[in-house]
Design a binder for these strands. Sequence first.
RNA 1: GCACCCGUAGCUCAGCUGGAUAGAGCGAACGCCUCCGAAGCGUUAGGUCACAAGUUCGAAUCUUGUCGGGUGCACCA
Length: 672
Amino acid sequence: MYLEAQQHLLARVRELIQTKYSVELGPIAIEQPPDLKLGDFALPVAFELARKLRKAPKIIAAELAAALTASPDPQLPATFESAGAGYLNVRLDRAATAIAILNAEGRPPSAKDHVLVEHTSINPNKAAHVGHLRNAILGDTFVRLLRANGQKVDIQNYIDNTGVQVADVVVGFLHLEGKTLRQIREIIAASTGDPDQRELRFDYICWELYARVSQWYEASSEEENKQRKALRYATLHEIEAGNNETADVAELISTAVVKMHLDTMLRLGIEYDFLPRESEILRLKFWDVAFDQLKQSGVLYLETEGKNKGCWVMTRPESGKAAKTTEGETDEDAKVIVRSNGTVTYVGKDIAYHLWKFGLLGRDFAYRPFYAYDNHVCWISTTDGVEPHPHFGGAQAIYNVIDSRQSDPQANVIQALRGMGHTAEADRYTHFSYEMVALTPRCALELGYTVSEEDQARPYIEVSGRKGFGVKADDLIDKLIAATRKETDQRQPDRPEAERQQIAEQIAIGALRYFMLKFTRGTVIAFDFKDALSFEGETGPYIQYAIVRIRNIFRKAETTPEAALAAFAALTSLAGTDQVMLKEMDEIWAIWLRAAKRSFTLDQAIQTSEPAFIARHVFQLSQEFNNFYHRHHILTEEDPARKTLLLATAAIALRELITLLGWLGIESPEAM
RNA sequence: GCACCCGUAGCUCAGCUGGAUAGAGCGAACGCCUCCGAAGCGUUAGGUCACAAGUUCGAAUCUUGUCGGGUGCACCA
């Protein structure tokens, strides 16, 4: 409703300026004054008019205010005044606005687009770490925002089950450990079942082994290292080819690890609809179809000269050169898509995959169910699937949650789509990029890693799977739950054990999700346990605590938020009283105005792909509520009309807090 | 060398479609539980918005340049 009010107001002001001064303005700026005392909207429009009209901004603002006041608008009751050096300030009629906020039922689903969000996409060869948590939490939250906006969203988690990283762990099991297929199956059986039964977690075993293999490739004489690398690529090729024992081992390992990743993410409330795997992109020959299309559209051309001779290449987006180089010249910067030996590169496979995402490939995966959630099933790609199955792909818009280091290959894919004439798709392809999570040197030392002098001087150190350097996701979650459990045990001694545990988990997950969301995407998170394990100040638990307080008030008042809001609406229909009450109490009005801005903020967050806007918005609302809470004692208020207002304000705050936290994937505990 | 991201309070970060005294959290000092839960609230201290030019009535915000930090730029995935 905030956005609508703004637009309505702007249209009115524009019309006024045109009739009064005969001036046609471009976009008119509108903002919120630094203090609620000054009003709800501020328009600096008089500054711009000052020169054209040769008049002081203050005078113009005053004239505009007078004219607007002279012709009241029943659709947007408000008062107007000139303020500061020449702002035109607008004060909404608080009672009327409050009623509008009360009645605002979530926006009607505007867009019916079928949107596809890809996130998580962890190499299935080791345990998930903090960096993956940022990815999954950002992606999952963004999905919730899109759905709140009425869009139909499919969530995909791409599984690179035939890449070098998986190959490395296969090399580890088969050649470093000398295990057979059968033994590996036993290891998996013993390390993936019931958490209380298993001794080691399979993904942790792989984490350690992957680091060991990576070192092993470098650990011997030059000659022998060369042989070890050869083994690595031989293994990779067997996995890619399929239908052999090495490929079977890879399949076993990657599937087991993927299941554990899904378990980990489910602890955070993160679910998926479909897991497309690279093995099917290979076996179902997505590339062959894409290759034809790419050749036909002229995006790819066969290089005949220079270092890329014999390769099918694509002009890079930034190079600015024409698709084909002028005669005699070769584009040495061109991106190789098909190698001179005929094999396709990663970007090539990615182009094929993205044609599928948009329904442009003309070929589909086969599907089978893979992982069961409470209300739905996550499907996985396969070569011969089951019928019936849901249909994935064919989206109108896609978002790829991938860290910023991959922006070059992402740009290549977009460039290919555009080159093929799929400009609408290219425009609706969003690389939802974010910076990595690194560790502070202190954190690295705390974890027992040796840190070089040089690294200790740096602000942060990049995590590395190859070095086994990083904080594992489940370790972090366990640590958070242990810390919150300690608190709930102390604060809620009378509650049953199961309830204390549930509350502790809600708070721990709230803290973790909020921590990952409060930073804007472009900020490198220098991870530190001290910050991540904090439950005070700008944290998830701070917001949850505000909710618990409000719930306690309603419990003790022996009424419900719904009843409080109904009572307020009834009271407000008797003109006057509420006006007086809201007038001088900005700390109350702040909460109502915040509520009014909900869909406005959601819009902003989606437009900019920035969930941090919502995180900040809900934190500010919590602060505003706490401020209100300490100034007004609700339960002991004796004036009934005033008590009605206070209860309704608490009810609105509660409604907003629960909704907004829900968008962030954070639960609202009953007590804490 | 080229591209992208970052440089704002002691620390970690918001603010960047140009607009009114540059904000929050943490940390520091002090204060507030006979009063709806102190995982809370209040007060104070703390800033040449990296630097320099330019555009503008107005620049943390836009442009250019410089410096510092990070990340990409394979016939790897």
